[in-house]
């Protein structure tokens, strides 16, 4: 063999800390414990992804997970995703109200343009809205032209701010994918926190050219889409995993301080008639536990920032 240049055995970043300068290396267990209001132990952030998967998917640079997989027109995937915004979301909203849980909505801007009725319902509730990019097929990716990406971010945020009347401080990229410039562009477009980097269980400071963003923990591993459609587990298995996670975080918080349980859910997944009961089961469990603080990411960040 022997097809590799000797530079393959050179390691220019082999030194203390990370192999990039976006954040400081630190172990969660070494950090100062954080206290949540009213002696709560776990801050619960329920993040509802409200998504638009266009039928004319471009798939650049890859087909977004959850998107169209069949030749055009892929009616089955288009309409099954659309189901979430027509039917599943109304089951979600009822459940949140029944169990007095505070959701946050991460919305594709294109969806808010297309379905004003749903947007009005969300606005009336007064819950926090985050930007989830333009649509699920508008990916941010390595090598993307920076001006093009800035235009997408600016357009998505300007329009979402206009339509919602909210400041829009939070961001989650479609597929949590980014280019090398995404964090800088988000910050310069007025974003304060984002959740694409799934490398922590607590907020931390993330450097950009224009100051710091807060990275918020929204684990993909507990996401309903990931567990049910990628791992092919049942909705009941999803509920078991959420409850096991909650039990563990409650236990860890007794020695290491407050924790954040970020739960990413989608009405086209858990909003189905045979799955909704498992969302209701975990919401009921949350509602009965006095150690849980159901909050928006901005509330969690405010509380965290006061203590660091």
């Amino acid at each position: 063999m022997g097809t590799l240049n000797d530079t393959y055995l050179k390691y220019p970043e082999r030194s203390y800390g990370m192999d990039h300068n976006r954040y400081e290396w630190s172990m969660l267990s070494d950090r100062k414990p954080i206290e949540w209001p009213n002696e709560k132990k776990v801050a619960l952030w329920i993040n509802v992804g409200l998504q638009f998967f266009p039928l004319n998917q471009k798939g650049i640079p890859f087909k977004v997970p959850g998107g169209m997989t069949k030749p055009y027109p892929d009616l089955r995937h288009y309409s099954l995703r659309d189901y979430g915004n027509r039917v599943g979301i109304y089951r979600f909203l009822k459940a949140f109200d029944q169990y007095n849980i505070t959701p946050t909505f991460a919305m594709n801007t294109r969806l808010t343009e297309r379905v004003p009725y749903l947007l009005d319902k969300i606005k009336e509730r007064g819950n926090e809205i985050m930007c989830h990019g333009f649509n699920m097929d508008t990916l941010h990716y390595g090598g993307q032209d920076m001006q093009e990406e800035n235009d997408i971010i600016k357009r998505s945020l300007d329009q979402l701010r206009k339509l919602t009347g909210q400041e829009i401080k939070g961001w989650v990229s479609p597929a949590k994918n980014e280019s090398e410039n995404t964090p800088d562009l988000l910050k310069s477009n007025g974003i304060d926190y984002f959740c694409d980097w799934v490398n922590d269980d607590m907020p931390y400071s993330f450097h950009t050219k224009d100051g710091n963003l807060t990275a918020m923990p929204l684990p993909t591993e507990l996401d309903d889409h990931f567990i049910i459609l990628n791992n092919l587990h049942s909705a009941e298995d999803w509920a078991d995993q959420v409850e096991d996670a909650l039990d563990f975080m409650l236990k860890e918080s007794s020695t290491q301080g407050g924790r954040v349980l970020g739960l990413s859910i989608h009405p086209w997944v858990l909003g189905q008639p045979h799955r909704i009961q498992y969302l209701e089961r975990v919401l009921e469990r949350f509602s009965k536990n006095d150690a849980i603080w159901s909050a928006s990411p901005s509330e969690i960040i405010r509380c965290w920032k006061r203590q660091i």
Binding site: P61, F62, N199
Partner: peptide, 18 residues
């Protein structure tokens, strides 16, 4: 994914941090 491939990189970083 083209670099930065966040899904894989960040979950492994989680292993060391948390």
């Amino acid at each position: 994914q083209p670099s930065p491939a966040l899904p894989g990189y960040t979950s492994r970083d989680w292993g060391n941090r948390v």
